[in-house]
């Protein structure tokens, strides 16, 4: 845990590395038991003083009659690992395309390190791996990675890039002979060919099996640990939960939620409470319990989703009933996400 805390503090002050580094190192080592708290604290203090890595201001993008991105405003800060979460058609890919300058917003402004996306790319500050990013065929993996390194203003050595992406052993293989997972790793290598400050990954683990996925996230974590800001879009919601400091939930081109995975879960009614009641009981009273986000009563069994399970359970006892087989369990981010999305849709219809 030392490393993540370390790099985050380094990145809060990107222009003062040399001065701040040793001082912050001691602070971090001391305060490491609650890294999350440290990070959150650092985020808030840093926000005011540094240029955001990415700044979207009221950005909209329409295709025909479809609003892919609808008045989106957000800021990413140095050192954050951010997951962009949303169902298909939520506007994730369009958001990333706008961020990378592959598409132009109809209205609003997109800034990357305070400049246009293209300027940030030319300055070598952004490395990206697109879901739709193809590879040049009929060349070897090593040749392609060498090309990516040569095109990067702050290039790493190709051999190091190959090794770090875990593709050194397939370096001589032709690009068009790779499996889906291997191709993803090559894409990752292209995104990390140089010392970029921001790494953007669009559904990077698509096509990987479970162990490949785990290995991939370990590799990606190294990138974050070196102080880079990482933004990734994903369908694997448990990954957002496990890896991101911050989760942005996108729905119909708008930002539905922005917070830590824990906050997102809380927002959606993130704990599930279930118990059995014997004999007659007052259903209306149960439905009026505090902090409920949903309740399902079938026979003697009551299933509740609550945004504050402690308070809800306390209130259950307050009703004077004797709940048996009481269980309180956390919701996965996936269910939390479904709940948020459904709540939003219910609000709109």
């Amino acid at each position: 845990m030392t490393e993540p805390a370390l790099r985050r503090t380094e990145l809060r002050t990107p222009h003062e590395h040399d001065i701040c580094h040793p001082v912050l190192r001691t602070v971090d080592t001391a305060g490491r038991t609650t890294p999350t708290a440290t990070i959150d604290h650092m985020t808030t203090t840093a926000t005011a003083t540094t240029t955001p890595v990415v700044g979207f201001d009221q950005v909209s993008k329409t295709y025909g009659s479809v609003r892919a991105v609808d008045g989106l405003s957000l800021e990413l800060h140095p050192g954050e690992t951010v997951a962009l979460l949303g169902p298909n058609g939520a506007g994730k890919s369009t958001t990333l395309d706008l961020l990378l300058g592959l598409k132009h917003a109809d209205s609003g402004s997109v800034r990357v390190f305070g400049t246009t996306p293209r300027e940030a790319i030319v300055a070598g500050r952004v490395g990206a791996m697109l879901q739709s990013g193809g590879l040049m065929e009929e060349v070897t993996v090593a040749e392609l990675v060498r090309l990516a390194c040569a095109l990067h203003p702050k290039r790493f050595k190709a051999d190091d890039v190959l090794a770090r992406a875990g593709i050194a052993q397939i370096a001589d293989r032709k690009v068009n002979k790779l499996s889906g997972g291997q191709a993803q790793r090559v894409r990752f290598a292209l995104a990390t060919a140089g010392d970029s400050d921001l790494i953007v990954l669009d559904e990077p683990t698509t096509g990987m099996d479970v162990s490949a996925r785990q290995a991939f996230w370990a590799t990606m974590r190294e990138q974050a640990d070196q102080g880079r800001t990482v933004l990734f879009a994903t369908h694997y919601l448990e990954e957002a939960d496990a890896i991101a400091d911050r989760v942005l939930v996108l729905h119909r081109g708008r930002l539905l939620a922005d917070g830590t995975a824990a906050e997102i879960k809380a927002k959606a009614g993130a704990r599930r409470v279930s118990f059995d009641l014997e004999g007659e009981f007052d259903q209306a009273a149960l439905r009026a319990l505090p902090f409920l986000t949903s309740i399902d009563i079938s026979g003697q069994t009551v299933r509740i989703q609550s945004s504050d399970a402690d308070a809800t359970v306390h209130a259950v006892y307050g009703l004077g009933v004797y709940p048996r087989n009481l269980e309180v369990a956390g919701l996965g981010l996936e269910q939390a996400f479904v709940a948020i999305t459904e709540a939003e849709e219910a609000k709109q219809s």
């Binding site: 592959l102 697109l130 739709s132 990013g133 193809g134 990067h152 203003p153």
Partner: peptide, 11 residues
């Protein structure tokens, strides 16, 4: 296949 897009993310 998107190689042209990928190249647009380089200098």
């Amino acid at each position: 296949n998107g190689w042209v897009r990928q190249l647009r993310l380089t200098t």
